[in-house]
Simulated scan of single mutants.
Amino acid sequence: MKILIGNRNYSTWSLRPWLVLVHFDIDFDDELLQLSGPRWRETLHERSPTGKVPVLIDDDLVVPETIAIIEYLADKFPDKAIWPQSMAERALARAASAEMHAGFLALRSNAPMNLRASHPGKVALDVVAQDLHRIETLLGGLLARSGGPFLFGHFCAADAMYAPLATRLRTYELPMSDVLNEYVEAIYGLPAFQAWRAEALKEPWILDDDEIDVIQGTVSRGTLA
């Protein structure tokens, strides 16, 4: 089994299923397809049905899209408890994951994941206020229900879906409650996340489209080093 991923520093969708694979001790290889450089778009289209990452390859089966990959892994390894065990909690976990997949667009657009960076104060709070309020309501409610440290007590697929959010909150030092801060700490303390982040910090590549200074127009494209 192999998963094709993008740059670890920036690729939120690659991070999510990779965390599931590593945390649940599933045997796999990974291959990084850079999201910049000569012919990078052509390479993605040659290797991925959607022209995007991640992509899971299991023998002759090719599965694109993060949630589809996670669901496939949950079906293939039912003993791993990738989703919560109770039907009610699985429903809540899938609902939260779907909301992450389709929502929080202001936060995702204005505060891109950048594990190497620290940009306190660079995101206008009025732009992301509605998303931050919903995050506090949703995640705070799930954490109160489970008692933490993860959304359903133990790490599951829903936490993998929200791991990039934790990095955004920390990178831009966005306001959060003590409960949410403890959740961010739990994500950062997860051995699988630490392994991903360690590799991300070694990457030399810069993606202008995911750098806040370029997005905000304070730095010209191609000038970051």
Rank of each mutant, 00 (worst) to 15 (best):
M1Y: 10
M1R: 11
G6T: 07
Y10V: 06
S14E: 00
S14N: 02
P17N: 10
L19V: 13
V22S: 04
H23S: 12
F24Q: 09
D27L: 13
D27I: 13
F28W: 06
D29H: 03
L32H: 03
Q34P: 11
S36Y: 13
S36M: 15
G37D: 04
L44Q: 06
H45F: 10
R47M: 06
T50R: 04
G51M: 12
K52P: 02
V55P: 03
L56A: 04
D58P: 09
P64A: 01
T66H: 10
A68W: 02
I69N: 07
I69S: 05
I70S: 04
E71I: 08
F77V: 05
P78L: 10
A88I: 09
A88K: 09
L92D: 00
A95L: 15
A98W: 08
A98D: 12
G103S: 10
R108A: 10
A111P: 01
P112R: 00
M113R: 08
N114L: 07
P120W: 07
P120E: 10
G121R: 04
A124M: 11
A124R: 14
L125C: 09
L125Q: 13
L125W: 11
D126Y: 11
Q130V: 15
D131L: 14
L132T: 14
I135N: 01
E136K: 01
E136R: 03
T137A: 15
L138H: 02
L142F: 00
A144S: 14
G148C: 02
P149C: 02
L151C: 01
F152T: 01
H154K: 10
A158K: 00
A160T: 06
L165T: 05
A166E: 03
R168N: 08
R170N: 09
T171H: 06
Y172L: 14
L174R: 01
L174A: 04
S177G: 09
S177H: 03
D178H: 06
L180P: 02
Y183R: 06
Y183M: 06
W196T: 13
R197F: 10
L201Y: 08
I206V: 15
L207Y: 06
L207G: 08
L207C: 07
D208V: 09
D208F: 03
D210Q: 15
D210C: 12
E211H: 11
V214L: 05
I215K: 11
R221T: 11
G222I: 03
G222W: 05
T223F: 02
